[in-house]
């Protein structure tokens, strides 16, 4: 019965407002009781997700204080003596600090720029295909690599770049390019683009499919050629999407995918392939320096976060687009 009454009440806007106003005057406990009586099912539905998030995302955040403490196994996440910034200083003064930072920035910035630009270009190109069937075919092909695992991607890199016999390696001389520290970043960028460009173009293709067709007609009346249509109709259409994605990508400016770098790493290319995440793994998990490892990880997270907030702030000012 109450459901009926609610439905009728919701039918008229004026009454809903009135009811809300009435409820605002209630004391807190009465309001809460009403809220839970009304929405306990929604709370129950959100509860598993909430529980998993609190346990597996927020408890580790609470554990970040480990970065400022000496780890004592018996005391778990929060025990141990407070040592302040000691582990951060240790990282900044470590001989590996500079090269690890440079490698991380180099690999991730290149990925960021190429990974941002290439899907836009690909989407603009695919959008030019008139036949729906050819268009669908092109999309099917370009999405495919996205579903291949990192292990397989790196295995393919190894196969293709093998000197003398590999598909690409046979043109690159006697030494394996994968062993050269300077080649790690470019190989990483190119393979990332190869794998994810098509997939990341979907979002732009979706935006392009919503272009108001009369815009093209109008532009043509004004004498626009093919390139002008792309430049003055297509590009402005996807601009807001571009900006949002760019901001979101900025939040990962220092997070290089651990798996791929780890799998590409070998003794020879280490000077060019040691990044923050692999270093954290070695320090923390492989040599059990938990506090030090936490500190390095936290440093990484904070930088990412600062970049994200800064990009968001700038974008809000300049383009009026933001993600929060």
């Amino acid at each position: 019965m109450r459901a009926d009454k609610e439905a009728i009440e919701r039918g008229s806007d004026a009454q809903v407002v009135d009811n809300d106003k009435v409820r605002k005057t209630w004391p807190l406990h009465k309001r809460l009781a009403w809220h839970f009586r009304q929405y306990w099912q929604l709370w129950l539905m959100a509860l598993p997700a909430l529980g998993f998030t609190l346990l597996f995302a927020y408890v580790p955040m609470y554990g970040i204080q480990l970065a400022f403490r000496d780890f004592v196994p018996a005391k778990g996440l929060t025990g141990g003596r407070w040592v302040g910034m000691q582990y951060f200083r240790q990282f900044f003064q470590s001989p590996l600090f500079a090269s690890t930072m440079i490698n991380t920035f180099k690999i991730s910035l290149g990925t960021l720029v190429l990974g941002f630009v290439t899907p836009i270009i690909l989407a603009l190109l695919i959008n030019q295909i008139g036949s729906q069937r050819i268009k669908g075919f092109a999309q099917t092909i370009t999405y495919m690599p996205h579903f291949i695992s990192t292990v397989v991607i790196v295995a393919m890199l190894n196969i293709f770049l093998t000197p003398n016999t590999g598909l690409i390696g046979r043109f690159l001389g006697k030494d394996n390019v994968l062993d050269s520290p300077g080649a790690v970043a470019p190989i990483y960028w190119i393979s990332e683009v190869w794998q994810h460009c098509g997939w990341n173009a979907i979002i732009y293709l979706a935006a392009l499919s919503s272009v108001d067709l009369s815009l093209y007609e109008a532009a043509k009346m004004d004498g626009a050629g093919r390139l002008q249509l792309i430049r003055y109709v297509d590009l402005p259409t996807i601009m807001p999407t571009c900006v949002v994605l760019l901001i979101m990508n900025m939040g990962s400016v220092l997070s290089v995918g651990f798996e791929k770098v780890w799998l590409m790493q070998n003794a020879m290319n280490l000077p060019g392939s040691e990044v923050i995440s692999t270093y954290t793994f070695k320090i923390g998990i492989q040599s059990f320096q938990f506090s030090y490892g936490t500190a390095i990880g936290l440093f990484n997270t904070v930088i990412n976060f600062v970049f994200l907030v800064a990009a968001n702030w700038i974008s809000k000012r300049v383009t009026d687009t933001s993600i929060f």
Binding site: P60, M61, Y62, G63, T280, I285, T294, L298, T301, F305
Partner: peptide, 15 residues
Amino acid sequence: FTMYFAGGLIPNYLL
């Protein structure tokens, strides 16, 4: 918020 900020590898591991 958890998309942009996380405890990191080591706190996860210990948990």
